[in-house]
Design a protein around this nucleic acid. Sequence first.
DNA 1: GTCTATAGGAGGATAGAC
DNA 2: GTCTATCCTCCTATAGAC
Lengths: 216, 216
Amino acid sequence: MNFHAYNRPMATHNVIKVSFKEQMLQAREDAIIQAVNRLLAEKGFDAMTVDQVAADVGIAKASLYKHFPSKEDLACAAMVSVMRRAQAFLDTLPTDAPPMENLRTVVGWTMGLKLAGEMPALPSQNSKLRTTLMASKDYMDGLMDVSDRLGAWIEAAQAQGALNAKFPPIAVLYTLFARACDPVLEFLKMGELYSNEEIIALVLGTCFDGLSARPV
Amino acid sequence: MNFHAYNRPMATHNVIKVSFKEQMLQAREDAIIQAVNRLLAEKGFDAMTVDQVAADVGIAKASLYKHFPSKEDLACAAMVSVMRRAQAFLDTLPTDAPPMENLRTVVGWTMGLKLAGEMPALPSQNSKLRTTLMASKDYMDGLMDVSDRLGAWIEAAQAQGALNAKFPPIAVLYTLFARACDPVLEFLKMGELYSNEEIIALVLGTCFDGLSARPV
DNA sequence: GTCTATAGGAGGATAGAC
DNA sequence: GTCTATCCTCCTATAGAC
């Protein structure tokens, strides 16, 4: 009892202090991730330099390396972040809606992200980066969860006859992921002829309806 | 007359010699471009190093720079090369065929190129590279020619009602260019479930028919 | 025009004081 | 954990002999 009486205040004090510190730490790491996310979307992984990230956050480069051990881990953290956003968005979609509708909505949402400059772009060739991503449980878990949920909708949509059954579900899944980073989006944006909403509608149209004319 | 009698043999000798030298030069530059093309397709512009190109060709790096003034110019030459191949392929297509059919054939051909590892991949963000490309008359001329020919087919196909008229021709053109480098191709190739022909058929299907089921 | 050797600089990562 | 200053590696590009 004396033990508790003696220790509790000290322990409480420590708990509060640590929690506050951790809160600051988390806030700073969030700021870092946000900067990385922006830079990755703007210039891509190779063109992004750690110096730019540090300057953007307003801290020294060495401090950055106290939070993340490498440039690859920075990018990985950004990917985990968007994956979480995607999961959160999926949570908001009605489970009783037509699966095809949900698929369309998700892809449209990712296109909006890209047009807003919030979609980090990673080179698919970089093996060092791939290794880091594959080794990240947070990233892989998120990716698997998203893939599973989309996969379920894909199969359901095919069972309903809304999604063309001649395409293997895996090919559809890849296609949806690819359309989230479709370069057509930035091409059309650069042309400045269409609003973001129009661009999304166009690219969604080409993706789901196809280029060939459909019989009325 | 004496002038000719005296000079002709020497001139002929020079002509042959120069022509031979130029032939060797051209052959070497072709070898360089082929190596660049392969490396660009395999690793992309940033990951490709000039040392690798030199080693691949089997000459010293300094010799490379006698042929091409910069790494960007190397990539540009490779792009001009594929553009020429594309123009040559367009030449083989029947002018009396349905334009929609020709569009499909061209896109399928570019997909085959990519699957064969012969489609150079350039980052769309690199401004130094973009400047070099824009400044290259050979590249721009080729790009314009290809765009014009595809554009004519697109408009003709829309006039015929074969290509969905709700899409602006420019959006269709961008989409066709984008599908030539579609990452879905390499994803499916990595899965090793489908042959190259099947992959091309699949991605052509998603592109032209769309993901949504079509009424029978 | 080919080579060897090296300049020059960018950028990822770290040392060490505080 | 933050900073300044620096290391070190890699890579583009060039100098200079042949």
